[in-house]
Design a binder for these strands. Sequence first.
DNA 1: CACTCGTGGTT
DNA 2: TAACCAAGAGT
Length: 340
Amino acid sequence: MSASISDILLDWYASHARSLPWRAPPGTPAPDPYRVWLSEVMLQQTTVQAVKPYFAAFIERWPTVAALAAASDEDVMAAWAGLGYYSRARNLVACARAVAEMGGFPDMESELRALPGVGDYTAAAVAAIAFGRRAVVVDANVERVVARLFALGDPLPGVRKAIREKADTITPAERAGDFAQAMMDLGATICTPRDPKCLLCPLRDMCAARASGDPARFPVKPPKKAKPVRQGRAYWIERDGAVWLVRREGRGMLGGMRALPDDGWSARGDGSGDPPLDGRFESLGLVRHAFTHFAIELAVLRPVETDCIQPDGEGQWWPIADIDEAGLPTLFAKAARLAL
DNA sequence: CACTCGTGGTT
DNA sequence: TAACCAAGAGT
């Protein structure tokens, strides 16, 4: 009887696992579920390199889920600034509070799945990695590896159901967590999106995509839509060494984050809203920034008359010397850099 | 299902 | 340099 895919992969993982701050070495006891969960949320659509400093800072500042549950929304949002997808930070606090209330993380995939910010992938990953449960973990790496192993040629996202079924068939009953991480490491280091390193792959002899001669063709992706460019304005309003900052509303673009006041570009898309105070403005320059589904050209403006300034609406005067601690998302950090 | 939601590195 | 892409979730 020949070795199974999971046996081969687990054997490969024993000597090729990446060493990561949130990870236990292959075959060693599972890490703290809090660390697993925190890293998985941070890693959603985010590179390992980008996550590392944020993970270290969060663990240092909030060593337990109870500590994070006790933190203020404002502090967590500011600590998340720059990492992107800020709904993750809003859900992170909500999830920490729910878990603290429960007395700890549930150890079943179905219960994990019910927590805020925990979807199919994260629930399976935490169940497998932190609790040793058998769970079918499918992220973009696994999708790519499985699509290639079985040469699944239908386009995403329709092919996902078939991918999951195939992933289920190769997931072992034991060590599903190591298996999942092995699949992800293989996808990240060998079975890469472009130019896969098939000669180094432990599964090369059983890979249908490699046999086809063009493994990089899998998985087939749909054409992407053009990215529109929006125009907007942001306002740099200074008084006594401080700048006027607002907190963005709701769950939309950059929701919950501290920001410069703007003209409503994110809601309207055309930057046609009103400035936060009357008077004339002069230009400090233009910030170009690309989001996932649109780009923006943000004009940064400063009031010409600088006496007796008091902007409309809610906000706070933030000391300019401490601007790095304001927790501005990157777009507004760029605008602040331009102003300074 | 289709769309929203960030950012920075790589090619 | 424009495009692609990363340990996805919520609506």
